[in-house]
Design a protein around this nucleic acid. Structure first.
Lengths: 208, 208
DNA sequence: GTCTATAGGCCGATAGAC
DNA sequence: GTCTATCGGCCTATAGAC
């Protein structure tokens, strides 16, 4: 073990290239396909550099997860400041490219303790932020929380989005179009009051 | 490649032992930990027997998935004939031990075409059966399908269950208790009419 | 159907030169 | 920070004896 693993202040291009390559392999071939040699090849480097910059492979996974988790959290923050936070959140969590990396980490973390711990922290942070966002959104739409509490709505929405994205990845879309228009109808039934001259809250068409 | 791979009519103890060992490793250490050597060790056999009986490792995964998928489908069929199909389905899909293997296969299948194809088939079959079950359950409870179509409800329930189980595995339970009692309340609000002298449809207590 | 033996390959990780 | 070289290990899969 050399004298690195310095958390993030070694922001060299090499480090980023390694993380980029790891992310790309995870997305396209799954976490099980990540090896120091493959990562290095993808990044145009020698495999030893992976170990030099990140230590063990688990350390590499952890570093990538921290980067991805922070980016995902940032997207939530942006959704929160959107004109229509509810719709912005829904679009965020049903975005397949955003979810596929997280799905890989979920599977990976199920059997690696240190990654699981980080995953739990990130997931809790996201849930808390989602609940705050939804509290605001429900209030904006004049829905009292006794109909459905914000934290419950967060679990419901996350779950449905997870089902849609993961089943879609597998190749089953039975009921998906109906579910999307069902959600669309729920959101339109409670359109927030327009505040300014912007028109960002109208729904886009969905095929049945 | 020898002269085996005979689908299932070679129902030797060895074959079952290999499948059992594979399932056990997948559950406890994840699909990436499955190797012919480890499977054989767990089953008390030589690793070459794995190849003799199943061919490639992908063939082994496929055989196990077929067995597990059939068992899971069978549990759905049993739920369908229950006194309270809606509750039986909910208990089935929120059962962690039932889901963890499926979750591994979902992750695995994302990057292996033949397994993905089988997964899609199984998932479609399950969705169709769930929709039939829910059609019956909604009717039984006097809910018209225009409130929420059965196939949509199937996606919603599957998703929420998936979120609960997978987040629980990670170690985040924020909002879960509230979600469970939310679902419980929905189910109790629409208790099916009792048909016989049995009392299987009352809810069991949930902590908030 | 189970055994021994083995080919051929990818893996993580480290040592030490520059 | 990057290079060359390398150790020791586990992997899939097959050949051939019994």
């Amino acid at each position: 073990m050399a004298a690195e693993r310095n958390g993030g202040n070694d922001n060299s291009k090499t480090r980023d290239a390694i993380l980029d390559a790891t992310e790309s392999i995870m997305r396209e071939q799954g976490y099980a396909a990540v090896s120091s040699r493959r990562v290095a090849e993808q990044a145009g480097l020698k495999s030893q550099l992976v170990h030099y910059h990140f230590g063990t492979m688990d350390d590499l996974f952890l570093a990538l997860f921290q980067r991805a988790g922070a980016a995902y959290f940032e997207r939530h923050v942006q959704a929160m400041t959107s004109d229509d936070p509810l719709r912005a959140l829904w679009e965020l969590i049903t975005d397949r490219t955003g979810m596929e990396l997280i799905f890989e980490f979920m599977a990976l973390s199920n059997h690696r303790k240190p990654i699981r711990a980080e995953m739990a922290r990130s997931n809790q942070r996201t849930r808390t932020l989602q609940a705050a966002l939804l509290t605001k959104a429900l209030e904006q739409r004049g829905i009292t929380p006794d109909v459905c509490p914000a934290n419950v709505l967060s679990v419901l929405m996350s779950g449905v989005a997870l089902a849609l994205v993961s089943e879609n990845a597998i190749g089953n879309s039975i009921g998906h179009a109906d579910t999307l228009s069902f959600v669309e109808r729920l959101m339109q039934k409670t359109t927030p009051p327009r505040v300014a001259g912007k028109t960002g809250a109208r729904g886009r068409p969905r095929k049945r």
